[in-house]
Design a protein around this nucleic acid. Structure first.
Lengths: 244, 244
DNA sequence: CCAAGTTATTCTCATACTGAGTTTGTCTCA
DNA sequence: TGAGACAAACTCAGTATGAGAATAACTTGG
């Protein structure tokens, strides 16, 4: 091994600086539809274009902290937000300014207040995931992978409870699945399934104050149970096209 | 927003350099047991301790390329290696030298020749995952998460075929599941299940030349099919302790 | 060569889970 | 007050699963 190889292997200062950012795919459900938080960029490059909220990590800040901070800067941060790491992207040239490695996070929250413009964005808004504007950088790809991850995790984790309030009805939970998966579900089977999975939900003993807006009896209220994995899982209807 | 906030948000050069590395959790099956590739560190910090193969990314190298390169440097790189991203780790202080963000990758390969010492390691060897030495940095955690990911992916993807040769018998495939999951499986049920999942394996029409080493008939040979997802999935026996 | 032991492959059968549809009774709105 | 909406529970046929057993093709040690 010669000297240059040694340096290439071990000394990061031999390289041009690499910048590390976090980008957050923040999802919520508004009016029965899945929405993602986007900010309009105020600076070059891609000024004026919509992007995922995110920014450079700070020197003494862990990755999840950075993600939570970036999200808080755009939304005023509600209490109950679930955050988890998604993936990292580091293709040279993905940011024209310099070598940037971006760690993406997925965040889920119950229906949130309208976001406020943060320190580094001209504007911030929830967008329905079926009708998105063109995104800056490679954020369209990150968002796509984040949605796919969210759809998967709904199957085998109690993630859906992160989209609803402290207590909720089975129908509210079902509408989360329908919004994220984008398909209608059989109400009776969903009900049976949710109640049969140990630890998914537990009854509060209460019911809603009134029936549904358009009629129907009062629904029983539940809260999230202590399961970390759903067993058996709630599987999406098979998607032929994704199997091959 | 004042000037310092602006810089904090947008100019990475305002920060101390962040180094980005890739670490690879490379798995293979040798003698019916799951093994992971480890290298003995030749340099400080943690000199002499075992670690996951990895190193700093190069300026014009994409992340997966860097992972493949690091793996090749330790093993002489066989052809058929499946590589996928695992997660990223960036807690301040995880490397005493400087701020390091590490992107981990998971690699799977059929039984490989003994590794060779690479350019940046004093030694390299396959270790059984049930009997591991103490690892450098936070590599024990990375390895644990890598194993968990591999066990999960075996359930719903044809990943197991990446651990066997071009053609294989159902029993060979079963022994992959048994090695990775660490539990014995019912041979008859496994056989029925594998053949019933569309696109998992396809028959070659051939059989093995001889029976098994200790007896039994010749087994039919299969190759990997075109499925990207297994449907229905091959589920592990329920793990009560992991559900709550 | 033969008996004993191994293994691949196929069956059986009882139980569990799933999708689709139905039933019952409560509630809202016009 | 009647029509429609909806929560919750039930039915039933089809499918998947776990456990065990049967069959037959091979091995190896005598």
């Amino acid at each position: 091994m010669d000297e240059s190889e040694f340096l290439a292997g071990y000394d990061p200062r031999a390289y041009p600086a690499v910048a590390v950012t976090v980008d957050v795919v923040a999802l919520t459900i508004r009016g029965g539809a899945l929405h993602v938080l986007l900010v309009r960029r105020g600076e070059q490059p891609h000024a004026g274009r919509w992007a995922l909220p995110g920014g450079f990590i700070r020197p003494d800040e862990d990755l999840p902290e950075a993600a939570a901070r970036e999200l808080a800067e755009e939304t005023g941060m509600p209490g109950r937000v679930h955050i988890e790491q998604l993936a990292s992207y580091g293709t040279p040239g993905r940011d024209p300014r310099m070598r940037v490695v971006s760690v993406s996070y997925l965040a889920f929250a119950p229906d949130l207040p309208a976001p406020r413009a943060g320190t580094d964005a001209a504007d911030a808004a929830w967008h329905r995931v079926e009708r998105l504007p063109e995104l800056a950088f490679d954020h369209a790809r990150i968002l796509t992978e984040g949605l796919e991850r969210a759809r998967d995790k709904l199957e085998y984790t109690p993630l859906a409870t992160a989209f609803v309030g402290e207590t909720f009805t089975i129908s509210e939970l079902r509408s989360v699945y329908e919004a994220v998966w984008g398909v209608p579900l059989h109400a009776g089977n969903f009900h049976r399934k949710v109640l049969s999975v140990p630890g998914f939900v537990e009854s509060t003993g209460e019911t809603t104050e009134t029936g549904g807006a358009r009629g129907g009896p009062r629904a029983k209220l539940y809260r999230a149970g202590d399961a970390r994995l759903l067993h058996p899982a709630l599987l999406r209807p098979a998607r032929e096209e994704e199997i091959r």
